[in-house]
Design a protein around this nucleic acid. Sequence first.
DNA 1: TTCCTTGCAAATCGTTTGCATAATG
DNA 2: CATTATGCAAACGATTTGCAAGGAA
Lengths: 134, 134
Amino acid sequence: MATKFSRQRQAIWDFIKDRTDHPTAEAVYLGVKSACPNISLGTVYRNLMLMRDTGMIRTVEVGDGVIHFDPNTTDHNHFICTNCGKVIDIDGGDVEAIKQEAAAHFTGRIQGYSAYFYGLCPDCTKSAATKTTE
Amino acid sequence: MATKFSRQRQAIWDFIKDRTDHPTAEAVYLGVKSACPNISLGTVYRNLMLMRDTGMIRTVEVGDGVIHFDPNTTDHNHFICTNCGKVIDIDGGDVEAIKQEAAAHFTGRIQGYSAYFYGLCPDCTKSAATKTTE
DNA sequence: TTCCTTGCAAATCGTTTGCATAATG
DNA sequence: CATTATGCAAACGATTTGCAAGGAA
């Protein structure tokens, strides 16, 4: 499959490659519109999925029923704010240790791994503290 | 909301309460049909979601685009077989330790947690070993 | 009787796909 | 030129919802 780097694929990659906010296909679509005014959602999906299959990016399923895309393909954890829905990277954790912990209690071979932590993100914690009541 | 325990809700609960195979709504629907021949998928969904909101069960999103339901509401990890799609509980892991590990690298308060490990389940590992060649 | 629930069917909504056309190497 | 990619719109499939009728307290 000789990959032809189309303008839209390039635009999608440029848009997502440095993102840390785990955009959805819809978000990528909107974000790329300025560079490619008449790109279609289908093309965005096709390219994102292709990038995932190629290992350029990774898909993240947070539990909101929508697929999020993450250019960070190294093992890391995710935090999801139960208030605003934001998805934040938790870098620097010892992923290997977590894998070991789980592997110790399971008889199969564990290859991949993906963990989600839920709670209030720093921002939401702050604004919650502001309002004294409610 | 005074909950009226209908026959179908009872049947759904009876069906799922001891399951460890994380059935989908569809699976519950089929499994409950013997007890309630003309129950509808909608009712199954409504009840499962209600049970989740009530904390009776928990939903599990494995990455196959379908919601799985789990009567085990205690913190535990899940293993998903990349070959057969089976979802297996990993009991006995030190979930608290994993939470701590992640919390140490994040500035928000971590409340919930859910992790998925991927690989070949014992069964599939076995059958893979059987076939000398592929 | 009074709400809560159901069954049914239609409606959503995210994602996928077929196809004729356009762009890439 | 031979392919690969695109845009569009229709197809899909899981989940949700409105509503009139049925069932539990």
